[in-house]
Each structure stands twice: as structure tokens, then as C-alpha cells.
Design a protein around this nucleic acid. Sequence first.
DNA 1: TTACTGACCTGCACGC
DNA 2: TGCGTGCAGGTCAGTA
Length: 286
Amino acid sequence: MPELPEVEVVREGLARYVAGRTIRAADVLHPRAVRRHPGGPVDFARLLAGAVVEQVRRRGKYLWLPLSTGSVLVGHLGMSGQLLVQPASAADGRHLRVRLHFRDDGPQLRFVDQRTFGGLAVAPATGPGGLPAELAHIAPDPLDPELDDTAFAAALRRRRTNVKRALLDQTLISGVGNIYADEALWRARLHYARPTETLPRPSAIRLLAALREVMTAALAVGGTSFDALYVNVNGESGYFERGLEVYGRAGRPCRRCGTPIRRDPFMNRSSYTCPACQPLPRRAHW
DNA sequence: TTACTGACCTGCACGC
DNA sequence: TGCGTGCAGGTCAGTA
């Protein structure tokens, strides 16, 4: 599933293959893919025609491409979205949702999304640095130099919830999803149900360091791919699945202490912990 | 204001 | 073989 490292790999690919090119036309093949664009598919295509892609930027799991028209193309991969750079001659995949043609008649940019949780939109660049208003509520991510460790620790401790729910809240810290939340908690030896208000500041700082560590390691090998749902712009998988310590390893021994990894239901998803390394706190917040 | 829940969505694995 | 069910999970609107 695309979290920060996977989205960053896609951003790098788009910067290499799409930046500087002029969009000739956009085909919207599934209206749900542009549901966050208020004007609908026709308006979406109209705003893109003739625009030059100037840059490719990212905040958390969102991508945004500043355009020569003063607007930005905002994208989110959701659960299964892919942005692929493919030659025009390549066959349309079953889940192709949006296709961008370029004036140079070179490779197309294709938005492919099996579960249609992701989407694209064109928005005015209104915020600082051209940040679209749609992304104003998204906090800096662990790899963003703007993220202040002390401020993050304070904000985390002000919450009245458990630590994993807080990590998944993109208004507190962005780019963290289920996989890297579990991996960072394991590295920081914290249980997901630990109430945020009981977390000492050094533990909060340690958790942030663990997030940076695991995300940097994942980024170095192209992110985490469990199946064909996450690939880079060239359709290639990442290799960090081999580096996962707890996620998806229920029943297998913890690589630190040998205790079988446990899987619990959490927020309609799963949480993976080592019961020995990450003991349940005396006061848990479910 | 803040925290929480359910809906959205599709393909796959599994049991019967 | 075919059907039903559960699961995967990021985001956001609605609710408490």
C-alpha cells in the first residue's frame, strides 16, 4: 500500500519523466477517479490541456504538480493507485482511470487504480509555495525538514487517544500508514494502545526517529510491495517487504526476542506487535 | 473542538 | 465449480 516511501519513489519517477512536458489532452475513463475535482471530468481535462508540468512535489501521501497555468494537479494513490509512464502503444490495463497525452507524443502518464480510493484533481495554487488549499490540513511528514521534533512530541502528548491512532492522523504527522506505524512502534518498543498523554517526551522523540529510520530504509530499496498494487512509474516493485520486522508476520518469531508476533484487529484493520518487546501498557487506550 | 465510526471500493483467499 | 464471506486500508463526512 502506498505510504510515504512509496509515494516518494513515484514522485522521483514523475520528476524524471513528466516534469517540463506540456500536456496535450486528458482522458478521464472513470469519473470516480476525479471525484475530488469539483468541476467534473470535462472541466478537469479542460484545465490540463496546454499546461506545462513545472515540478513534482509531495506532502505526506499526496503528490502535487505545479502547472504553468497557475493551477496544480493534485494526486493521491489511495490504496491501489499507480501513476505509470507508458508508451502510447502500451495496451490499456483493466483499471486504467485517467490518461494524460503530451504534446511531444512521448510516453503517456496513466493513472491506474483497482480499488478507486485514489484520485486526481486540478486546484488553484493558493497556499505558501503554491500549496493547494486541499492540502493545507496535511501536516509535514517525518522526512520533511519543516517537521519540528519538539513540537511534534508536544502535539502528540496533547492528544487524548492511543499512539497508533495519532500516527495515522495526517493532521498531526503525514505519510504514515498502517505498515510503517507498526514498524516504527516495534522499533521504538511501544504498544499501539499506549495513551498519548502518558508518553514521555523522549519516547515520542524516539518514535519519530524510528519512523524516519524505517521510512529512509524503505525508500532506499524502492518501498514496500506485497503484490502488484504498488509499483513505481515504470511498473517495478520495491523490496522493503523483506525488511519488515512485524507487519504481516503474525505467528512468526520476533527478530529481536523470538516471541511470536501477534495480530490484533485495530480500526477495521490489523496491528502487529511483539508481546514481549511491546508490552500492553497498564493503562491502554483502545 | 476533538475523537471516533462507517462508507467507499475491488480482487483475492478461503470455506462450504 | 460456484457462491458467500472476510480481509486488505486511506480518507472523509457524519456523529457523539
